[in-house]
Write a protein that binds this DNA or RNA. Structure first.
Lengths: 99, 99, 99, 99
DNA sequence: CGGCCGTCTAAGGATC
DNA sequence: GATCCTTAGACGGCCG
């Protein structure tokens, strides 16, 4: 699945030498590319976080309780995924424990 | 700062009644809109997180040490001064403790 | 509240000199004590974590669904703390949103 | 691996019936015991966490940099070799990237 | 060996 | 302005 990497990472086969002394030029390019792509995506992530925050502020200005809104969103997120079997067991235990 | 909101949030002035019994229809619509917009943005966020993870996996497959790559990214996003100051203190403590 | 500390931390007033070059002997002792006490407590914590894990294993061997048991414990932990006002709002929003 | 448990877990052999309808009384007792023991241990864990926090606060009051102290503790609990290896890689990457 | 879950740290926001 | 709490990210251990 992973092609034998000849370029990236510390060049393993500099036998006997001080390990990890260099990367090939290609490896450096690859590394740089990886880092830059990640940084780019993280910027987008940050922008989205800002947008979300703005909406929460709007909610607050409109008089909603932000904390409660957050909880609603959390609930909506988890309930569908509640695999039935799990739910069933939790309910069974709750019932049997008198909760 | 917040204009008196007539629609959103528990209607405060149902004097004497059980508080927070209803929202106006408009408030419900507003709330729903807020929630849906946030959910939409969170999906995008999640997608980006997935993309980032993929790149880290690519890095790993290419033979890079993911943890070290993470640290590089972290360092690049910090004020060099801060890092240095922290490092200096850690080294001081280590030295004084004989580590 | 905080007595002026003359011993601990980088000695601030070595004016003009390279900052943070030394700690007083007393500060070193104090630091060492702090670290050792924390390490001791963390060990105890770890031991407890082990005990807890053992019990979960016992539960599993007895045929209980560990994940469900975890959720039960989580529920028992949070329900009492649900401040009423918050609960009320969440319920209001849920109702109004038809959840 | 798990001996057929006759008491705990959903009673599997109510053949054909709605599954997971009941636990035996013994199973309920067992479950309750498990939960209570875990809760007890978690309380102790929490107490220890509080103690640790107190010590960090003491450190802060004494003028130490808490973040640096944390790092010291982290370093002490790691294999020195690991730390070094990590450091070496980070430095290699930094160098190769011209940082 | 990879993914999942839980925990812990660090940052940001809310509160007083 | 300081502190506290809450949230998001990183990390390690566990399970499959």
């Amino acid at each position: 699945m992973v092609e034998p990497n000849t370029l990236a990472g510390p060049i393993g086969d500099n036998s006997g030498e001080n390990p990890a002394e260099h990367l090939t030029g290609d490896a450096v390019d690859r590394l740089r590319g990886i880092i830059e792509r990640i940084e780019r995506l993280e910027e987008e992530r940050k922008a989205l976080a800002g947008d979300i925050k703005d909406i929460f502020n709007e909610a607050k200005s409109a008089g909603f309780d932000v904390k409660a809104v957050r909880e609603i969103i959390r609930l909506r997120k988890q309930e569908p995924g509640d695999v039935e079997e799990h739910r069933t067991l939790v309910d069974l235990y709750k019932r049997e424990l008198g909760m």
